[in-house]
Computed example of a mutant assay.
Amino acid sequence: MDPLQVSLTVEQCWQPVPGGSGSYVAELTRALVARDDVQVTGLAARHRRDAVPDPAPAGRTVTSALPRVVLYEAWSRWRRPLAESAAPADVVHATTWAVPGTRCPLVVTVHDLAFLRDPRHFTARGNAWFRRALEIVRDEAALVVVPSDATRDDCITHGIEADRIRVVRHGVHPADVSPQDVAGWRRRTGVERPYVLWCGTLEPRKNVRGVVAAFAAAQAQGLEHDLVLVGPRGWGAEQEHVARAVDAVRPGSVRLLGRLSAADLQTAYAGASAFVFPSLWEGFGLPVLEAMAHGVPVVTSAGSSMAELTGDLAELVEPTDLEDLAAGLARAVASDAGPALRRLAAEHTWEASAAAHVGVYREAAAARAAG
């Protein structure tokens, strides 16, 4: 069987805050280029020669003559340029809401529909662009990849037929982190006490202010840990809101460390007593899977995509109930669920995710060939 030619969008890796979608693109392309049944070509916008994506997609990338803003608007408004004008393809895969025009079978990954659940968490321009992208997906996608049952259900609710949707979960590559690595990271960052970790982009739906308030309540009830917040600044005033919340907590007990390198982030996971991630909504919740892979007890939102990952091994809480969240923190730091969470995380590999993606590509191509 000849390798399938797949063009997929990788521009997310050049975004100032690539987020979980950027990690998905980088890890998926890395796993795909290791296979011999598919040949992938990344599609990106024009960038300066010294612009380095982080994380970086694997394999060959072709760049448009257009910068990102113009390219995305051209795709959204006029469905041009066609993806196959940059590289021949049997299938085109839009890995985010930036969906190229194409005459080839189109596969689109829908990570979440958070912009429909609470538009206040996004800019007016962003909401309009996401809604237009959803229209394109409904009209043009041969198949839609989603990372969770929660996102599948949202897609069905908003007009994408169930028979076009395929649930393909993300994977994880846990890094080997030694006690010496953790000790060195603690020295460099000044994190001396046992700590609870949160990781993500500072944006409203991540519920970081709720995490800080619940931590303060747990502290008042005897929690003897610090809280470490890591991740890039998002948009709007959330950074300032979180900073004010931190100021109201016992001095020195909450650390805002900003964006960490990939290696330092893995070390931060490994050294944590617990990981807290009570987002209001996530399409998947990759940080939860990463914490699980290090055997770290987890506090996360009940009834969410993250609860799909953890099952009843995590402390599942109502994210807006500060008392429930504070109690979950206290239980997590005393939990012995870490080894079971690590075993569960080991079932999620990027190799398995890539294999499932290839299956979707072949299904889309076969449907086109059948007429």
Rank of each mutant, 00 (worst) to 15 (best):
D226Y: 06
G303N: 11
A45W: 02
L322W: 02
D2T: 14
V91P: 00
V167R: 08
R187I: 06
D264K: 05
R362S: 13
R331I: 04
H241W: 09
R250V: 07
A183D: 12
A262R: 13
A356V: 07
S148L: 04
E27D: 12
Q5H: 11
L316H: 10
A213K: 11
Y24L: 08
V196F: 04
L256M: 13
T201F: 08
M306V: 14
E84Y: 13
F284K: 00
S253A: 09
P147T: 10
T123I: 07
A51K: 00
V246T: 09
P278F: 04
R125Q: 12
L106P: 14
S76L: 15
V137H: 01
L66C: 07
A326R: 06
R46I: 00
E347H: 14
V146S: 05
I165N: 04
W129E: 13
A150E: 05
S304N: 06
L260Y: 11
P16H: 02
Q15A: 15
P53V: 00
N127D: 08
R233F: 02
A268S: 04
Q12F: 00
P339G: 07
A352E: 12
P179H: 07
P287A: 01
A133P: 06
L202Q: 14
P57M: 00
L4P: 06
E192P: 00
